[in-house]
Design a protein around this nucleic acid. Structure first.
Lengths: 253, 253
DNA sequence: TAGTGGTCTAGACCACCAA
DNA sequence: TGGTGGTCTAGACCACTAA
């Protein structure tokens, strides 16, 4: 990172800084390495700390950096490929699934969810909370909304809530024949509870995956999963082939 | 937006402000309506303009607001659902496709692309630039990398570049039998050229969709499409059913 | 307790757009 | 030309982490 000055260019300083830093990351740093602190970096480039931070934010958004309060800024590893829309039609919670049920409650869902499930606005549904982890890192928090009608024979002997209940609901779902599913991906910002679970600050960028599970001609369940946008690449394999896992798809600058 | 003061709460001001504004948007504003300018809003809530802007940035990231320099801040319409991984295996540029070829060149691709295509590092490939538009709005800029081996019989009479050449390359692809495709979605920031095409500033958040097209047992083409993250919801229909188009999946606060 | 990133302020000037 | 959002500064203090 020999550069110490910014020549006057017609592009914003923070953008040019982002490019300079990006190239430095490629050539002079290794994954996990700690960068100098923000005050030093700002001084080194002759800009205000706020401007330097704007550049760092960009790079964090692109998954190049990881910043942690009280610790420092480190070079992030390449994004993890996470299979989301597998070709196999499978219910969540099947064998080989890396979801870990955390909790299950019975409550009235948000209006938008009720509409998608075609349930009455005030009808309670099962809400299964799970997390997905890879390499010990939480990468996603998922809420699965299951109308009571989809799992009619939940035995009363099961726990009324908690992980055991969650697994019972998932088992109930697997008795239905899954006819198909469709998903949508959009950008969002982490709510306080999701942020905590994902070890991020509120407002951190996340990829929200909404999946409808179709069975018996209707929406049998709806999943809203929140993935860390900085560390995840969501893969949708529509072919029978092998999925790209750690592909190096980085946008050139 | 009657609120004029922020009580002291243990959460950041900008986050609380985001919540307050979000609720105001739901209840007191209609799509397309213009908000007061940033200086007025900041004064009204008793915060610095930078803090107010942090809240607006969040809301823009969530697709709730649209800000345009020299114009103002308006309430954004719901995100548009864009079909990305259609169940039908189809080459890009088929009938009914809303891609509009813009240009086509022959050049050596970035190293990461060459690796995915299994071409030599210095081997030139066809690069087809297209845009996707809905309602007259550019929502995506796409680069399609096609190895020359995939379209061996490109007639010399076609134009060497430009839209006509692009269509010729796409026609060539359609002669191959498509065996499958897989996609990956990740968050990125718009490069200068994409930003211009999408009517955004450089660094604007985008969803980058990388698609591999498989034919004859190998990767016959690779597409890197850049979607406006603020206005798009990408839909992946793995079922035969109807796609969600304008679903109201909004994260509750 | 020392050092980090996160929040916030109160200004200034610039680039862009519409009237 | 006047008003908008975009960039930038030079500070201050806070929340968190690790030693």
């Amino acid at each position: 990172m020999g550069t110490t000055q910014l020549e006057t260019v017609p592009e914003p300083k923070y953008w040019h800084l982002r490019t300079v830093l990006s190239e430095a990351l490629d050539s002079e740093f290794t994954v996990g390495e700690i960068l100098p602190n923000e005050r030093d970096l700002a001084a080194r480039f002759g800009v205000a700390r706020a401007t330097l931070r704007q550049a760092l934010e960009q790079l964090e958004l692109e998954g190049r950096l990881q910043r942690r309060r009280g610790v420092g800024t480190t070079v992030a590893p390449p994004r993890v490929g996470v299979a989301v829309g597998t070709g196999q039609h499978a219910w969540p919670g099947m064998q080989g699934d890396d979801r870990q049920p955390v909790d299950c409650t019975l409550a009235t869902p948000p209006a938008a969810v009720a509409a998608a499930l075609e349930t009455a606005r005030d009808e309670a549904v099962h809400i299964v909370r799970s997390t997905r982890t890879t390499h010990g890192q939480a990468i996603a928090a998922e809420l699965l909304y299951v109308p009571q009608a989809s799992v009619p024979d939940l035995s009363a002997i099961d726990a009324p809530s908690g992980p055991a209940r969650a697994r019972a609901v998932l088992r109930g779902l697997q008795r239905l024949e899954l006819e198909g599913r469709d998903s949508a991906v959009e950008l969002g910002s982490a709510r306080a509870d999701d942020a905590k679970e994902l070890d991020r600050l509120p407002g951190a960028p996340v990829l929200v995956v909404t999946t409808r599970f179709l069975a018996a001609g209707r929406t049998a369940a709806l999943s809203v999963a929140t993935y860390r946008a900085d560390t995840c690449r969501l893969t949708f394999g529509a072919s029978g082939g092998v999925e790209i896992q750690d592909g190096p798809q980085r946008q050139a600058s």
